Amino acid sequence: MSVYVDDMRAGYGRMVMCHMLADTDVELHAMADKIGVARRWHQKARTPYSHYDIALSKRAMAVQFGAIEITQRQSVEIIRAKRLAAAGSPLREGEQ
């Protein structure tokens, strides 16, 4: 089980944001608590798309606490796998 931060760079006011996601919401919220991100910023609750948009300063803290740095493409792949698992669909041969 892991927490991930991607390499997205989106402006939000004066901040630059990225995504933080995890294999489970329990892990996601635990990391948010560790780095000081309020639960009200949680997006897509109880779905495979569950995540936080976090500032780069919080991203650095998450990495210090063990979050894995990934690309945006990898974040899409993680969400896809979570979506398939939630639907009970096994991966087809050759898919990851």
Rank of each mutant, 00 (worst) to 15 (best):
M1S: 14
S2R: 15
S2Y: 11
Y4A: 06
D6H: 07
D6T: 08
D7G: 07
M8R: 11
R9P: 03
R9L: 09
G11L: 10
Y12D: 08
G13Y: 10
R14N: 12
R14M: 06
M15N: 13
M17V: 11
M17H: 03
H19N: 13
A22D: 04
A22N: 05
D23H: 02
D23F: 00
T24K: 08
D25W: 00
D25K: 09
D25M: 13
V26C: 00
V26T: 13
L28T: 06
A30I: 00
A30N: 12
M31Y: 01
A32S: 09
A32T: 06
A32G: 15
D33W: 13
K34S: 10
I35A: 05
G36L: 07
V37H: 00
A38M: 06
A38F: 00
R40M: 09
R40P: 00
W41V: 01
W41G: 09
H42R: 14
H42P: 00
Q43N: 09
A45F: 02
Y49R: 15
Y49S: 10
Y49N: 14
S50P: 05
H51L: 08
Y52E: 03
D53E: 10
D53R: 08
I54C: 05
I54A: 03
I54L: 06
L56P: 01
L56A: 05
S57Y: 08
K58W: 05
M61D: 15
V63G: 06
V63K: 13
V63L: 14
F65W: 11
F65V: 04
F65M: 08
G66Y: 03
A67N: 04
A67K: 01
A67G: 05
T71D: 04
T71L: 08
Q72S: 14
Q72E: 11
S75A: 15
V76A: 15
I79N: 02
A81I: 04
A81H: 12
K82E: 03
L84N: 11
A86V: 05
A86D: 12
G88P: 06
S89Q: 15
S89G: 01
P90S: 07
P90V: 05
L91I: 07
R92T: 09
E93R: 12
G94W: 01
E95L: 11
Q96A: 13
